[in-house]
């Protein structure tokens, strides 16, 4: 019996269930965190009615969304319309398989983990684009076009930053990257200024691109509610919208996890106390809070604003860090 439990298929099944439960729970409760956080930023209490401090609110929302009709409007491309939300959710779920939550807590410890995440990450854009395109709605189509043009802006600096990181660490294995950041907190990549003096800037670029990738404010041009009503999601009702909504949070979760792994030392404890998983979660949720904080502080950019930022600032700076760190590596 014990032997059966420790076989590979059972282990994978456990991780599959684990990750889905983790994402599901997080997607639901990040909505709560967002609403509660938004409330506090705006000097109001946020959800309070359902359960203690509104803790059952996500469940109430889910029941509401599930019990509504999934309307597929007349004349839409029904197949694409239905598949788009799933296409947004699936890559986030799959990518989490390679994220090391703890020293030995990763579903798959593969050597090209980082590559896998970025390969899957580009499907996101396609999902919103398909959703918008198949909706047969002017707002949605404009939103679809925006998503694609936005994609050009953030994908390049992200990849340049990631290449820098791969060069510094010499591996694409996420577990290995974390292991290299062992020790006190100044061994975390974000503080390793002797490897590259611009390391904090690199982290910042990664964080900005992550916000753009997840369509979060201030880069939420795709669903800009004051311009495009709800953008690509305009025609979606019921769980069609629900899955999109949860996928947004799943993507935030993934982005923050990746930032934690790449820059903040993953499960490495800064003081050597408490188990690794806990530290991972603390760091990740701090980033999630930062994402919420940013959203409820800034107005939305224009997409030429994002393109300007990307081409005039992020790409040159990330290219510069790439060259700088390669030069430093060559010299020392």
């Amino acid at each position: 019996m014990l032997k059966l439990l420790s076989t590979e298929p059972v282990r994978l099944l456990a991780f599959l269930v684990g990750i889905m439960a983790f994402v599901g729970l997080n997607a639901a409760y990040l909505v709560w965190v967002e609403r509660k956080g938004a409330g506090r930023f705006q000097r109001r209490p946020g959800p309070t009615e359902v359960g203690y401090a509104g803790l059952l609110q996500p469940i109430a929302d889910a029941i509401k969304l599930l019990s509504k009709q999934l309307i597929v409007p007349q004349g839409v491309d029904a197949a694409l319309f239905r598949v788009a939300p799933l296409l947004m959710m699936a890559p986030a779920l799959m990518s989490l398989a390679v994220i090391p939550f703890g020293p030995s807590l990763a579903a798959r410890n593969i050597n090209v983990g980082l590559l896998l995440i970025f390969a899957l990450g580009s499907i996101n854009v396609m999902a919103i684009m398909l959703g918008g395109w198949s909706s047969r709605n002017k707002y949605a189509i404009m939103s679809a076009a925006r998503v694609v043009s936005q994609n050009v802006a953030y994908e390049i600096p992200t990849l340049l930053v990631v290449i820098t990181m791969i060069m510094i660490t010499g591996t694409m294995n996420l577990n290995e990257i974390v292991r290299q950041q062992a020790g006190a907190f100044w061994h975390w990549n974000v503080f390793r200024v002797w490897v590259n003096p611009l390391m904090p800037v690199t982290f910042l670029i990664f964080f900005i691109c992550m916000l753009a990738e997840t369509n979060r404010a201030p880069f939420d041009m795709a669903e800009a509610e004051s311009e495009l009503v709800a953008g690509a999601y305009t025609e979606y009702s019921s769980m069609g919208f629900g899955v999109f909504f949860m996928a947004e949070y799943a993507n935030i979760l993934l982005g923050c996890s990746l930032a934690t792994v790449l820059f903040l030392g993953g499960w490495q404890s800064p003081f050597g106390i408490l188990p690794g998983v806990l530290w991972f979660l603390i760091k990740m949720y701090f980033l999630v809070f930062a994402v919420v904080w940013v959203r409820w502080t800034f107005p939305r950019t224009q997409f030429y604003g994002l393109l300007n930022l990307s081409w005039k600032l992020l790409i040159p700076v990330s290219l510069f860090t790439l060259i700088l760190s390669s030069a430093i590596m060559k010299l020392y």
């Binding site: 506090r40 930023f41 705006q42 000097r43 109001r44 209490p45 904080w293 409820w296 502080t297």
Partner: peptide, 21 residues
């Protein structure tokens, strides 16, 4: 300017709420 903006909102975050339930 972005940092200043974020400082303003986090300052409000820890102040008591002003709404009436």
């Amino acid at each position: 300017s972005l940092i200043v903006g974020m400082r303003v909102t986090i300052g409000q975050f820890f102040k008591p709420i002003v709404t009436v339930q």
